[in-house]
């Protein structure tokens, strides 16, 4: 299938893009197109205007300081995977990026596009929620900074207004002494996750985030409590029960999440685990 008709705009600057976004009806931002183009090809959406932001040089820049890294919106998954931009999370970002789709998809797909798309089985929503990243958003009406945890409202639903553009994604530095674990369970390489667990383990505290369980990534508060209260490893059944309470999932889904979380915990703690590497 071929897309329905639309008008195409290729602004050179953020200001120009914001102008177009403000004045055009039924306009959509085009980032890498790796989520939008399949949707357009299948005619599941038919916007009147596409505003392609990949020609805006300012959106390719990154800035790094002590607190973290701020990536321009059109930073691609590949740039993160290949270390062309700095990583404030000691390997977590390149690791996550490398698991997204296929190389050809990563060469075009962007970090901001992935967040704006808001699919909870995708990598960035969960990873960047766990890292407490934030997006910088601009419109003709002004600028704002939205934590990723507040940006994502549901499947394909975000807190962005129609005229707003994500210009940058700000990722704080992973705190000293924090070890991470990430496990993506998918039927095949390149597939979206069936379960996506991120664990951040620091002395006295373990934080767990789960993607692909609800319409947005969720923090597993109940599970964290159960873990905090237990000495030594807990049984998979117990973990599954806690995750069920956190996510409302049951049966096979719950089981899969439990295994993902357990493996992510083992990875973060540096315990050996079948089929996964250790990241410190």
């Amino acid at each position: 299938m071929k897309p329905a008709e639309f008008a195409y705009h290729r602004p050179d600057s953020v200001e120009e893009a914001l102008g177009l976004l403000g004045e055009l009806e039924e306009a959509k931002v085009l980032g890498g197109g790796q989520s939008l183009l399949p949707i357009l090809n299948m005619r599941l959406a038919a916007p009147a205007h596409l505003i392609d932001i990949t020609g805006i040089r300012a959106l390719r820049r990154f800035e790094e300081d002590d607190s973290g890294v701020r990536y321009g919106a059109v930073t691609t998954h590949m740039m993160i995977e290949d270390g062309l931009v700095p990583d404030p999370a000691r390997g977590l970002l390149p690791h996550a990026a490398a698991g997204i789709g296929y190389r050809a998809v990563r060469n075009r797909g962007t970090i901001a596009g992935s967040l704006a798309h808001s699919d909870s089985s995708a990598e960035w929503p969960t990873v960047l929620s766990a890292l407490d990243a934030a997006v910088h958003v601009r419109s003709n009406r002004g600028d704002r900074r939205i934590p990723v945890r507040e940006l994502l409202l549901g499947f394909f639903t975000t807190a962005l207004a129609e005229d707003e553009l994500i210009t940058a994604v700000e990722v704080p530095r992973l705190r000293e002494g924090t070890r991470w674990g990430m496990v993506k369970m998918a039927r095949k390489p390149g597939e979206f996750a069936e379960s996506l667990a991120i664990t951040l383990v620091r002395p006295g505290e373990t934080e767990i985030w789960l993607g692909a369980a609800r319409d947005v990534p969720v923090r597993l508060a109940e599970t964290e409590t159960v873990l905090a209260g237990s000495i030594g490893p807990i049984a998979l059944e117990q973990l599954a029960e806690a995750i069920g309470a956190d996510t409302g999932s049951s049966g096979y889904e719950r089981q899969r999440h439990a295994v993902a979380v357990r493996r992510a915990l083992e990875t973060a703690r540096g315990e050996t685990v079948r089929g996964a590497e250790v990241h410190v």
Partner: peptide, 29 residues
């Protein structure tokens, strides 16, 4: 497929492999 999955449409765009079915001609200016 025109869905980004099969890779039959792979071409090099500025030296990198991309899905030609998921890239607008206009974006290749």
């Amino acid at each position: 497929c025109e869905q980004g999955v099969c890779g039959a449409c792979t071409v090099l765009l500025d030296e990198l492999p991309v899905r030609a079915c998921l890239t607008l001609a206009a974006s290749c200016q």
